[in-house]
Protein backbone atom coordinates (compact mmCIF):
# COMPACT_ATOMS: atom_id res chain seq x y z
CA UNK A 1 0.00 0.00 0.00
CA UNK A 2 1.11 3.53 -0.68
CA UNK A 3 1.13 4.96 2.80
CA UNK A 4 2.33 2.00 4.86
CA UNK A 5 3.53 4.10 7.75
CA UNK A 6 0.01 4.89 8.89
CA UNK A 7 -1.16 1.29 9.11
CA UNK A 8 -1.08 -0.66 12.32
CA UNK A 9 0.98 -3.21 10.44
CA UNK A 10 4.63 -2.23 10.22
CA UNK A 11 5.31 0.10 7.33
CA UNK A 12 7.33 -1.18 4.43
CA UNK A 13 10.96 -0.47 5.26
CA UNK A 14 12.27 2.81 3.96
CA UNK A 15 13.99 2.29 0.61
CA UNK A 16 17.21 0.62 1.70
CA UNK A 17 19.83 -0.40 -0.78
CA UNK A 18 19.12 -3.69 -2.53
CA UNK A 19 22.09 -6.04 -2.63
CA UNK A 20 22.75 -9.21 -4.57
CA UNK A 21 24.18 -12.11 -2.56
CA UNK A 22 25.31 -15.60 -3.50
CA UNK A 23 24.52 -18.24 -0.87
CA UNK A 24 25.92 -21.75 -0.74
CA UNK A 25 23.73 -24.17 1.19
CA UNK A 26 24.77 -27.65 2.25
CA UNK A 27 21.76 -29.96 2.65
CA UNK A 28 20.85 -33.58 3.21
CA UNK A 29 20.07 -35.02 -0.20
CA UNK A 30 16.60 -36.30 0.68
CA UNK A 31 13.32 -36.11 -1.21
CA UNK A 32 11.64 -32.74 -0.86
CA UNK A 33 14.62 -30.77 0.35
CA UNK A 34 14.62 -28.54 -2.72
CA UNK A 35 10.87 -28.00 -2.30
CA UNK A 36 11.55 -26.79 1.25
CA UNK A 37 14.10 -24.27 0.06
CA UNK A 38 12.02 -23.04 -2.85
CA UNK A 39 8.86 -23.02 -0.70
CA UNK A 40 10.66 -20.82 1.81
CA UNK A 41 11.58 -18.31 -0.90
CA UNK A 42 8.12 -18.21 -2.48
CA UNK A 43 6.26 -18.31 0.85
CA UNK A 44 8.18 -15.40 2.30
CA UNK A 45 8.42 -13.42 -0.91
CA UNK A 46 12.21 -13.60 -1.37
CA UNK A 47 13.78 -13.39 -4.82
CA UNK A 48 15.66 -16.15 -6.59
CA UNK A 49 17.85 -14.87 -9.44
CA UNK A 50 19.67 -18.13 -9.94
CA UNK A 51 19.54 -21.59 -8.41
CA UNK A 52 21.72 -24.63 -8.94
CA UNK A 53 21.67 -27.91 -7.09
CA UNK A 54 23.45 -31.21 -7.28
CA UNK A 55 24.67 -33.96 -5.00
CA UNK A 56 28.27 -33.25 -4.08
CA UNK A 57 29.13 -35.91 -1.47
CA UNK A 58 27.52 -39.19 -2.37
CA UNK A 59 28.48 -41.24 0.71
CA UNK A 60 27.22 -38.58 3.10
CA UNK A 61 24.12 -37.89 1.00
CA UNK A 62 24.92 -34.22 0.86
CA UNK A 63 23.87 -31.81 -1.85
CA UNK A 64 25.04 -28.30 -2.44
CA UNK A 65 22.59 -25.60 -3.46
CA UNK A 66 23.83 -22.27 -4.79
CA UNK A 67 21.32 -19.43 -4.72
CA UNK A 68 21.75 -15.91 -6.02
CA UNK A 69 19.24 -13.66 -4.28
CA UNK A 70 18.49 -9.97 -3.85
CA UNK A 71 17.25 -7.91 -0.94
CA UNK A 72 18.00 -5.28 1.68
CA UNK A 73 20.69 -6.23 4.21
CA UNK A 74 17.94 -7.06 6.76
CA UNK A 75 16.15 -9.32 4.28
CA UNK A 76 19.40 -11.06 3.33
CA UNK A 77 20.04 -11.74 7.02
CA UNK A 78 16.49 -13.14 7.38
CA UNK A 79 16.99 -15.39 4.35
CA UNK A 80 20.13 -16.86 5.86
CA UNK A 81 18.50 -17.37 9.27
CA UNK A 82 15.36 -18.87 7.78
CA UNK A 83 17.43 -21.27 5.65
CA UNK A 84 19.54 -22.28 8.61
CA UNK A 85 16.54 -23.27 10.69
CA UNK A 86 15.27 -25.80 8.13
CA UNK A 87 15.92 -29.20 9.67
CA UNK A 88 17.78 -30.87 6.73
CA UNK A 89 20.10 -27.89 6.19
CA UNK A 90 23.63 -28.20 7.51
CA UNK A 91 25.29 -24.90 6.67
CA UNK A 92 24.64 -21.65 4.89
CA UNK A 93 27.57 -19.57 3.65
CA UNK A 94 27.18 -16.14 2.16
CA UNK A 95 29.80 -16.12 -0.58
CA UNK A 96 29.38 -12.39 -1.07
CA UNK A 97 30.70 -11.52 2.39
CA UNK A 98 32.65 -14.56 3.60
CA UNK A 99 35.90 -13.62 1.87
CA UNK A 100 37.11 -13.88 -1.70
CA UNK A 101 35.10 -16.38 -3.70
CA UNK A 102 34.90 -17.51 -7.30
CA UNK A 103 31.58 -17.60 -9.08
CA UNK A 104 31.06 -19.30 -12.41
CA UNK A 105 28.32 -20.44 -14.68
CA UNK A 106 28.19 -22.41 -17.86
CA UNK A 107 26.11 -21.52 -20.88
CA UNK A 108 25.41 -23.14 -24.21
CA UNK A 109 24.66 -20.60 -26.90
CA UNK A 110 23.11 -21.48 -30.25
CA UNK A 111 23.79 -19.11 -33.14
CA UNK A 112 22.51 -19.31 -36.70
CA UNK A 113 24.22 -17.60 -39.64
CA UNK A 114 26.06 -17.81 -42.94
CA UNK A 115 29.11 -16.28 -44.55
CA UNK A 116 30.62 -13.33 -42.68
CA UNK A 117 28.37 -13.89 -39.71
CA UNK A 118 29.93 -17.29 -39.16
CA UNK A 119 33.41 -15.86 -39.27
CA UNK A 120 32.46 -13.10 -36.86
CA UNK A 121 30.83 -15.57 -34.47
CA UNK A 122 33.93 -17.75 -34.39
CA UNK A 123 36.19 -14.73 -33.89
CA UNK A 124 34.17 -13.54 -30.91
CA UNK A 125 33.96 -17.04 -29.46
CA UNK A 126 37.71 -17.21 -29.61
CA UNK A 127 38.06 -13.90 -27.79
CA UNK A 128 35.72 -15.15 -25.04
CA UNK A 129 37.34 -18.59 -24.90
CA UNK A 130 34.06 -20.23 -25.85
CA UNK A 131 34.31 -23.69 -27.39
CA UNK A 132 32.40 -24.94 -30.39
CA UNK A 133 30.53 -28.08 -29.28
CA UNK A 134 28.24 -28.45 -32.27
CA UNK A 135 28.62 -27.15 -35.80
CA UNK A 136 26.47 -27.38 -38.92
CA UNK A 137 26.37 -25.59 -42.25
CA UNK A 138 24.13 -22.89 -40.79
CA UNK A 139 24.70 -22.98 -37.04
CA UNK A 140 27.03 -23.29 -34.08
CA UNK A 141 26.54 -24.21 -30.46
CA UNK A 142 29.13 -22.58 -28.20
CA UNK A 143 29.99 -23.59 -24.67
CA UNK A 144 31.17 -20.78 -22.47
CA UNK A 145 32.00 -20.64 -18.76
CA UNK A 146 32.71 -17.63 -16.65
CA UNK A 147 31.19 -15.06 -14.38
CA UNK A 148 27.61 -14.14 -15.23
CA UNK A 149 28.49 -10.73 -16.69
CA UNK A 150 30.97 -12.30 -19.09
CA UNK A 151 28.28 -14.66 -20.34
CA UNK A 152 25.87 -11.81 -20.69
CA UNK A 153 28.36 -9.80 -22.79
CA UNK A 154 28.93 -12.80 -25.04
CA UNK A 155 25.22 -13.38 -25.50
CA UNK A 156 24.69 -9.68 -26.25
CA UNK A 157 27.32 -9.82 -28.96
CA UNK A 158 25.76 -12.91 -30.52
CA UNK A 159 22.32 -11.31 -30.69
CA UNK A 160 22.81 -9.29 -33.89
CA UNK A 161 24.71 -12.18 -35.51
CA UNK A 162 21.80 -14.59 -35.14
CA UNK A 163 21.26 -15.77 -31.59
CA UNK A 164 18.75 -18.63 -31.47
CA UNK A 165 18.71 -19.69 -27.83
CA UNK A 166 20.70 -19.89 -24.64
CA UNK A 167 20.78 -22.53 -21.93
CA UNK A 168 22.50 -21.56 -18.66
CA UNK A 169 23.32 -23.58 -15.54
CA UNK A 170 23.03 -20.77 -13.05
CA UNK A 171 25.82 -19.75 -10.73
CA UNK A 172 28.04 -22.08 -8.72
CA UNK A 173 30.49 -20.66 -6.23
CA UNK A 174 33.43 -21.69 -4.09
CA UNK A 175 35.69 -19.83 -1.71
CA UNK A 176 39.33 -19.16 -2.60
CA UNK A 177 42.09 -20.61 -0.42
CA UNK A 178 42.57 -23.93 1.37
CA UNK A 179 39.48 -23.91 3.63
CA UNK A 180 36.30 -25.83 2.80
CA UNK A 181 32.74 -24.99 3.74
Amino acid sequence: MANGSTSHYPAAPAAQGIESHTLCVLVDNEPGVLARVIGLFSGRGYNIDSLTVSETEHEKHLSRITIVTRGTPMVIEQIKNQLERLVPIHRVIDMTVSGPAIQRELAMVKVRGKGDDRVEALRLADAFRARVIDAGPESFVFEITGASDKIESFVALMLPIGLVEVSRTGVVAIQRGPEGM
Binding site: P10, N81, R85
Partner: peptide, 11 residues
Protein backbone atom coordinates in the same frame (compact mmCIF):
# COMPACT_ATOMS: atom_id res chain seq x y z
CA UNK B 1 16.48 -19.61 20.63
CA UNK B 2 15.60 -19.02 16.99
CA UNK B 3 18.07 -16.76 15.15
CA UNK B 4 15.39 -15.99 12.56
CA UNK B 5 13.30 -14.23 15.24
CA UNK B 6 16.14 -11.78 15.78
CA UNK B 7 16.37 -8.66 13.60
CA UNK B 8 13.29 -9.79 11.69
CA UNK B 9 11.03 -6.81 12.42
CA UNK B 10 13.16 -4.68 14.69
CA UNK B 11 16.91 -4.22 14.59
Amino acid sequence: IDPSSINKNVK
